[in-house]
Simulated scan of single mutants.
Amino acid sequence: MSSTYGKIFKISTFGESHGAAIGAVVEGCPAGLDFDLEAIQYQLDRRKPGQSRITTQRKEGDVAEVLSGVFENKTTGTPIGLLIRNEDQRSKDYSHIADKFRPSHADFTYTTKYGVRDYRGGGRSSARETAARVAAGALAMQVLKTQGIEIYSYVSQVGNLKLDKSYKEVDLNRIDENAVRCPDPEVAQRMFDYIDEVRKAGDSVGGVITGVIKGVPAGWGEPVFDKLHAELGKAMLSINAVKGFEYGTGFEGASWLGSQHNDIYFKEGDKVRTQTNYSGGIQGGISNGEDIYFRVAFKPTATIMRDQTSINEAGEEVVVSGKGRHDPCVLPRAVPIVDAMSALVLVDFMLRARTSKLLFP
């Protein structure tokens, strides 16, 4: 099913942008986990709209409700139902595109596939669906926290404005100190000003989010088709507006020589380490114990506050006018989504790793 992800820790999301609610059903969460609803709400608050003038002004509380699977603040091992009610739909904002195909949106492809589409905010294709992923991902983070695993994501590029520092050169604890979620305050301010300038011009801009995962032990991942980096790539590319994924040296490494790129092993105490980490913490599709790091490219938001030509369902040329409340840049609110998808990939591989070795001599 296209709305389900995971093999052991499995989530299924449901709902539309302008429906009554969205949510997720989580299966495979270990029983006995201390359930922290506040931690889930914290991640939802990082993603919710209306955080600053450079995000959509839709006002959603995004309050998580727990429907099942938790008793006396502990998980029971049964399916966990998480619900987020929609509160601020303005469906009339979309009546003007009921039969029109917005440029770079999923309107045409959904109509072609299903023969019908929910035009209100894009329906199921709306990025509002990602709130359910964030809720489920926040639960996955609680499982990973028991293993000492830390997940960080931050905005490292907006348009042509780049943070020219590696993740090791910035303080990852400062990510949430500004509206852009860039850990360098000076670069963050330039990014904020640029996004605001683009917003005032009725346009949009894309950029890059860098992800960092610390504390993953060696041995997580599967050979051939379920490689750890392949699942991370799939997870990131499933996020709305994502156009690219690279890990380790990525495309830059394609121009290097093998003698430059190879990570040399050495022994540090009882642990095998690498002198460099050009592999991005993954070799052969399996974690090697080093930091996992990657980059995710986001396109500019498709809806812009300018008139554009397109066609309608009858094939006639029409003008599509930008209306409604939209993000001029999706990156600040996408940071917790990248965090969540990272957690969902890793928790599933954590549980799968427990079944890959004999439990007896």
Rank of each mutant, 00 (worst) to 15 (best):
T4C: 03
K7V: 14
I11E: 00
S12D: 01
G23L: 00
G23R: 00
F35W: 11
Q43W: 12
S52E: 13
R53Q: 15
T55R: 02
T56D: 03
Q57R: 11
A64P: 14
L67F: 14
K74V: 12
I80F: 08
E87P: 05
Q89P: 13
S95W: 11
R102M: 08
P103R: 04
T109I: 15
S126F: 03
A127M: 09
A135M: 06
Q142F: 02
Q142I: 09
S153A: 13
S166F: 10
V170H: 00
N178A: 04
R190D: 10
D193F: 11
R199N: 14
V205E: 02
G207M: 15
D226T: 07
L228T: 07
L228Y: 01
H229D: 12
F245D: 00
G248A: 11
F251I: 06
F251A: 11
G253I: 10
A254T: 08
A254W: 07
H261L: 13
V272L: 12
V272M: 14
Q275G: 07
S287R: 01
I292W: 09
F298I: 02
T303G: 07
T303I: 15
M305R: 11
R306P: 05
T309S: 13
E316V: 12
V319D: 04
S321N: 09
P332K: 00
P336I: 09
P336W: 00
P336D: 01
A340C: 04
V345T: 11
M350H: 07
R352L: 15
R352F: 03
L358E: 10
